[in-house]
Every structure is written in C-alpha cells, then in structure tokens.
Computed example of a mutant assay.
Amino acid sequence: MSETLTPTSTDYFSAVQAAIADALGIDEAEAVPEATLLGQLGAESIDLLDILFRIERTTKVKITVADIAALLQGGIPDEEFGDENEVVNDTGLTHLEKVLPQFDRSQLSEPLTAEGVLGLFTVQNLTDLLTERAAAQHTA
C-alpha cells in the first residue's frame, strides 16, 4: 500500500520561486522568501495574476487574489480594519501581525494604508498560503 505524503512548504517554494521569476522576468535567486512581491520584486497587480496562474498550472492548486486579500484582512469588515482614511487601525495591525510573521508594526515609519497592505506580502507568505491550500485539497 502506498502512502500519500502531506505537502510541505519546502515542496512548493521552488514552484513559487519559478512562477515569480518567469512572470517577472527575473532570476529565481532574486525571489528569496523575505522579498515582497509588489515592493522589492516590482510585481504589479497583473503580474500577481500571472504568478497565481503559473502556480496553479504547475501545482494544480488554485489561489486567487481574493484568497490573498481574505488572508490579509481575515474577514474583518473594512470599517473595523481601518479608518475612514483607509489607514489600518490597531485591529487591522494586530491581525496582520498574526498572519504575516515578518510584519512588525514597530517598524512602520508612517501609517499603513489599506493599499499598502498587499505590499507586505512576501514570497514566503505566498508559499505558506499555497502549502495550506494544497494540504486542504489533499485531505478533501
């Protein structure tokens, strides 16, 4: 009887790295775990869609931009996540610290806006999300 293994983050990092490199036209070595997709790697929203499509094609696991947004906002209503100026408040910052291990609000030099939240998303965050989705798909 063959045993099926649960996918791990290591299994998917190379797929994420390759998808990012191909979509952005960069060397795979630049897509290090701590690099932010929209900031340091220069991805734009259309690139993010391309990356997610490439990941799905190679891993058979679908992740959407809405999945990333849901992770980042955690189901917290907009009015509870930020203020009327779209500045992320304490509730939102606390949630981000839970879901983005690298995020440290004490390092913010200016208020974090709702638009800036996606800029915090790293290669490792995408790998972790993919691993989580693959494991859920595996057990379904």
Rank of each mutant, 00 (worst) to 15 (best):
G82T: 11
A43M: 05
L49G: 15
L108I: 04
Q124N: 12
E132K: 14
A136I: 15
D27Y: 09
Q17G: 03
E3I: 14
N125I: 11
L108R: 00
T113D: 04
A35M: 04
E79V: 10
A66R: 03
F81L: 02
L24Y: 05
T122C: 10
L100E: 05
F53Q: 09
S14W: 09
L38G: 02
L112S: 06
N85V: 06
T131W: 05
F121M: 06
E84R: 11
E30M: 11
L52Y: 03
L129Y: 06
L5K: 15
V117A: 08
T94C: 04
N125L: 05
R133M: 12
L71K: 06
I55V: 15
D90Y: 05
Q102C: 13
T36W: 04
V65P: 03
I68P: 00
I46C: 09
A35R: 06
R57K: 15
A43K: 01
D128M: 05
L52A: 09
Q107S: 05
F81S: 03
A15T: 12
A135I: 12
N125Q: 12
H95Y: 04
A43R: 02
E44R: 14
T131F: 06
P111D: 03
A136Q: 15
T113R: 10
F103T: 06
A35L: 04
I46F: 15
A31H: 01
Q137T: 12
G25D: 05
A21R: 08
R105Q: 14
A43C: 05
V32K: 13
L129I: 11
P77Q: 03
D128E: 11
L52T: 03
F13T: 14
Q40P: 00
L130C: 06
G74S: 08
E132S: 15
I55P: 01
L120E: 01
V61K: 13
T91D: 02
G75Q: 08
P7Q: 09
A134R: 08
N85K: 07
T36L: 05
A43N: 04
I51W: 09
A19R: 03
D27F: 08
L126H: 01
P7Y: 09
T139P: 04
I46L: 15
T122Q: 11
G74D: 12
L52V: 00
D128G: 07
D47S: 15
P33I: 00
T94I: 10
L49F: 15
D50K: 13
R133G: 08
L38A: 02
G119I: 00
D128I: 08
T6E: 14
I51D: 06
L49E: 11
A18N: 01
V88N: 02
G116D: 05
K98Q: 07
L71V: 07
G92L: 01
S2E: 14
T58R: 10
E79W: 03
E56G: 13
I76T: 10
H95Q: 03
G39F: 07
L129W: 01
L48G: 08
Q17D: 00
V65L: 13
L129R: 00
G39W: 07
H138N: 13
Y12C: 03
V61N: 12
L120T: 10
E30L: 08
A23S: 14
T139H: 15
G82M: 12
K62H: 13
D104I: 04
D67H: 15
L41W: 05
F13W: 10
P7R: 12
E30W: 09
